[in-house]
Design a protein around this nucleic acid. Structure first.
Lengths: 227, 227
DNA sequence: TTCATAGTTCGACCGTAGCCGAAGCATTGC
DNA sequence: GCAATGCTTCGGCTACGGTCGAACTATGAA
């Protein structure tokens, strides 16, 4: 008398510590190789290879061969969303396995989620765009308004290119630390890239934290004022 | 070098088939006893007791003693939301463990999620309320508008009582079958209860399906027209 | 009090699944 | 061609955790 999809299989996949590390490592949207993920998870290459097969088989991650390397990505933003949601549950009993350090504080301020900006700054950007009518919420997702289109173009982003792309341009993603939406989708990704290009922020290699430059702090506050 | 909350522990808890059955059984919001849950999961009472301790320890479920019975509920709507999200992932590769039958079709149409209405009808209700400006989305959550307050009161619900309650009145919950939001929170619960009281629908004992009466079909379509 | 029902704890059993190292493919570089 | 690198497969070990039944506790009913 069980109804609905079988969640135990997929949850069990996420439930192994090594596999959870792998998935967490992929949450910033970068593609990583099997060796890098093995290192990240702290297991041997053969073990990691087994884990990766299982995750790929369940379509939680998407493998891509490139030469003699094999790169892995999270399958899509929905998977990333489920992982963030699980982090939300885990976070509220302080079940962080993290060695606390300077990076962790920065993680709360700005970090990469899948491939867009998350953390306090990600949420601030989102709320600022909504508050000024540049982004409008429609049902479960969001869209650029006319004003928003203009703003984003002025920000240095080719909106037309995004619109013709295959990926959804605007998506929301629930932030595990802030418990509020931030902007995902191809626009979210483009915004982060643009801010990196302008020297406002840069990703911390080997973690999901995003380091904000002095110049970036000021420019960000001007571009995305709290409303 | 792991950052962020430790999702593996919590995912592993959900990942055991017996525990997943228990959690799934609790998704309709009813409180069930240890024996009932053992039956549901198909394990012995002693085994179930162990599982229940673990789930309670992780605050996924909330135990309540009542006489010589012990009742269990999901801890809150966020837990229910994570479970629905996992179902969404599982559903897309057809990983249903369900014996297909007439009930399952009904589950797609209308079912109980935690304690509110989900499935096609749940989504229709939500979209109808949004479309007519009775419910407004604000950031990640939703609120009743002035018109909405009037409408809901006319529907036979004491809004003031809900507002003074401890639980959040309006919440959204992502539907695993429809992939769209439906209304959760104490208002979502009250709406379902009210519709049951009026004889529009009733819960199928022993499953999460909601059976809609002939009268209910018509009344629902009138009350929540597609916009 | 005595009995019955509900749930917990304990001990023992057993299977699954994670782990590694070694050997085997595949791809690139020399 | 041969060597080096990246990954997969295989075999065998181990341990963790799910399972049950039995003994124990607690609550309520007769």
């Amino acid at each position: 008398m069980k109804e609905g999809p079988d969640i135990s299989h997929i949850a069990a996949l996420i439930g192994d510590p090594a596999r959870a590390s792998i998935l967490t490592a992929l949450m910033d949207g970068r593609a990583l190789t099997a060796s890098e993920l093995a290192e990240e998870a702290g297991v041997g290459l053969s073990t990691a290879s087994g884990h990766l097969s299982k995750l790929a088989e369940a379509e939680l991650i998407a493998p891509r061969k490139s030469g003699r390397h094999k790169y892995f990505n999270l399958a899509d933003a929905e998977v990333a969303g489920v992982l963030e949601a699980l982090m939300g549950l885990a976070a509220r009993k302080g079940a962080t396995r993290v060695r606390t350090g300077p990076r962790d504080a920065q993680m709360q301020v700005a970090r990469v989620c899948y491939n867009h900006l998350a953390g306090r700054m990600g949420v601030q950007m989102y709320r600022s765009l909504i508050g000024r009518g540049l982004l409008a919420e429609e049902g479960e997702d969001v869209a650029l308004t006319g004003d928003g289109r203009e703003f984003v173009t002025g920000f240095g982003i080719d909106v037309t290119a995004l619109e013709t792309g295959r990926a959804r341009m605007c998506r929301t993603c629930l932030d595990w630390s802030e418990r509020r939406n931030h902007l995902a989708g191809s626009l979210g990704r483009a915004m982060l890239t643009r801010m990196e290009d302008q020297g406002w922020m840069r990703r911390d290699a080997g973690s999901r934290a995003v380091l904000v430059t002095q110049k970036g702090k000021a420019a960000f506050a001007t571009a995305f004022p709290e409303t």
